[in-house]
Design a protein around this nucleic acid. Structure first.
Lengths: 132, 132
DNA sequence: CGGGATCCCTGCCGATACTG
DNA sequence: CAGTATCGGCAGGGATCCCG
């Protein structure tokens, strides 16, 4: 665990060093919420502004009601998503990003954008690998 | 599917629009390799320089031989990791990042670094959520 | 519309054993 | 050392039903 970059993924708090590479690091669950199968896409879908439950569901193609619900709950608990429920009939619930959620989504989109741009390069690498 | 940010996660190639939010987008598997449970940590571990199989295994705490092997194969096929095998006895294999792998790892570390820094904020949000 | 509860199954992943 | 092969569990997640 040395070098300038690995130091960049550790941080001190109350005298305890947190290290993402360690199995027991408390940031692991958060990282999994953000980078998990649906977390990133859900955050990304909210970057353009608040959305309601079923709007979100249509944007994130392929997600089930249950998984969207679970994903949103986890992200809300982590303080990345704000949930605004109005007790009307029919109920109306708006989901939006918190400031931290927005910063997270932006870095995530920077990653996604890079991968999208380089897909031709990736597909070429895959063909070369498979040809062997 | 509108707005400046969603446009940022689509790209054109050969007249076809790729959209990460779509279930069938060919970049989904790539995204899952990179942001999956072990992909990101493996890429992150290689940022400081080449590592051998068991060095990598010790760095990425908790990964099994099987998962490290599978993860490296997927990342190699995607063109993010370079594998250099020397046919000596005992065998020596070095893993390193390709240029694209390095760019990817840097954006990933930017995300991880943000989350690490803000862990106190996240933990406070979790306590507030659980208190309800 | 916005979810919660339940059922069920797939496939992810860990453990173990073996090879060159 | 650097892996591959095989087995099995159990939990992630999809489908469905239901309610306010």
């Amino acid at each position: 665990m040395e070098g300038p970059h690995t130091r960049a993924v550790t941080s001190y708090r109350a005298g305890v060093e947190y290290n993402v590479f360690a199995r027991a690091c408390p940031s692991r669950p958060l990282l999994e919420h953000v980078t998990g199968r649906w977390g990133g896409l859900t955050l990304g879908a909210l970057v353009d502004g608040p959305l309601r439950f079923n709007e979100l569901r249509r944007r994130v193609d392929g997600i089930s009601e249950k998984m969207l619900s679970q994903t949103l709950q986890a992200l809300e608990r982590d303080g990345l998503v704000h949930r605004d429920a109005q007790p009307t009939t029919p109920p109306r619930v708006d989901y939006s990003l918190t400031p931290l959620g927005r910063e997270t989504a932006e870095r995530l989109l920077a990653l996604i954008h890079l991968l999208m741009e380089r897909m031709p390069e990736v597909e070429a690498a895959q063909r070369a690998y498979d040809a062997r």
